[in-house]
Simulated scan of single mutants.
Amino acid sequence: MMENKYNLKSPAVKRLMKEAAELRDPTEHYHAQPLEDNLFEWHFSVRGPPDSDFDGGVYHGRIVLPPEYPMKPPSIILLTPNGRFEVGKKICLSISGHHPETWQPSWSIRTALIAIIGFMPTKGEGAIGSLDYTPEERRALAKKSQDFCCEACGCSMRSALLALSPNSNPTPEDHKAKELAQQINFKAESSSSRQASESGGAESEPSTLSQGESSTSGSQEDADGLQAEQAEASPAAAADEARPAPAPGSSRSLSPRQRRAQQRQRDGREPASRPTFPAFAAAAAAHQPRDGSHAGSTVLIVVLTLALAALIFRRIYLAHEYKFDYEL
């Protein structure tokens, strides 16, 4: 029936049908199978962990899988009152749809079932779908859970799992799933501690690292921006740094001739291939008209002096010539 309803080439369909074949037979601790008319909705039953407030209880729930499974996580909903998870509400775990960033495609429905059993004795700490009932209330609900019967799949908790036996040996698949579930528990503790630190508690290592990375990148960006602003706003300062420093006490007490001599000495010392900063180029352009005007004024003075001398000489010459003609 399932083969005719779904596309067997779909990765999600192939994965779910494989897992359904692996989980067909119930074990002492868990069992899960898809509904007859919906491969993407599974019903499961798990036994409460021993030596806990849930010891002796058998709990029923739903697993709703997305079409992108196993690339995206399933949603998990408990149907049996248990005192740890809310009934009929998607619970918030690192293996559920509330945390797609922590889901790994290598995890499976078997992994999720063992992880749920491992999560039950932990504290809810205000997570979505979590409860923190007293131990007495949880023990009472564990005894009462045996009477639960699912209306959708018709599963009774009294016969959902195999009876416990002292000589039962877990399968290799259970060992592998338990190792993955321990990783899930560790991630759940890390995420819960991070939530506690965000709400005002002590900071955890993952949050500290993320804050350190963000502060480092932010400070680096600020430093880069500051350097860019300094380079744009103060090119004259960069030009001043590139120029050689003047001798002490020789800035304003020098005459124009001494300043020109010092400028020529600097020009002779500096290489011809020095970088031309905008401010330096502007300063050089500003100096050039002054030097040219000074040289032009010197030439003009010389020319005027020569012209004046020529006029004086001509006047003297003409005066002597007039006097000679008068005497004759």
Rank of each mutant, 00 (worst) to 15 (best):
M1P: 11
M2Q: 07
E3I: 04
L8Y: 08
P11F: 01
V13Q: 03
A21F: 01
A21L: 06
E22I: 01
L23A: 03
D25V: 10
F44D: 00
V46N: 00
R47S: 03
L65W: 01
P66Q: 01
P66A: 04
E68V: 03
M71Y: 05
K72W: 00
K72V: 04
P73C: 06
L79W: 00
T80F: 01
N82P: 03
G83Y: 00
R84D: 10
E86Q: 14
V87K: 05
I91E: 12
G97Q: 02
H99F: 11
W103M: 04
W107M: 02
R110V: 02
R110Q: 09
A112H: 00
L113M: 09
I117T: 11
G118R: 05
M120Q: 05
K123I: 15
G124M: 08
E125P: 15
A127Q: 11
R138H: 06
R139N: 09
R139D: 02
A140M: 13
C150G: 01
A152S: 11
G154N: 02
G154C: 05
M157W: 00
A163C: 13
L180Q: 12
A181M: 05
I184P: 00
A188M: 11
E189F: 14
S191V: 12
S193A: 15
A202G: 15
E203H: 12
P206C: 07
S210T: 05
Q211E: 14
Q211V: 09
Q211M: 11
S217I: 12
Q220M: 15
E221C: 15
D222V: 12
A223C: 12
A223F: 13
D224I: 08
L226A: 15
Q227P: 14
Q227R: 09
A231Q: 07
A231V: 04
P235D: 10
P235L: 07
A237E: 10
A242P: 03
P246C: 11
P248M: 09
G249Q: 06
S251H: 08
S251D: 07
R252M: 13
L254H: 06
P256N: 10
P256S: 10
R257K: 11
Q258N: 05
R259A: 09
A261M: 06
R264Y: 03
R266L: 14
P271L: 02
S273L: 09
T276G: 14
A279E: 03
F280M: 08
F280Q: 07
A281M: 08
A281E: 07
A282C: 03
A286V: 03
A286Y: 06
A286P: 03
R290I: 09
S293G: 14
S293R: 06
H294I: 12
A295D: 09
G296S: 10
I301R: 10
V302T: 10
V303G: 15
L304C: 14
A307L: 13
L308A: 14
A310H: 07
L311M: 13
I312P: 02
A319S: 15
E321M: 12
Y322V: 10
D325F: 09
Y326N: 12
L328I: 13
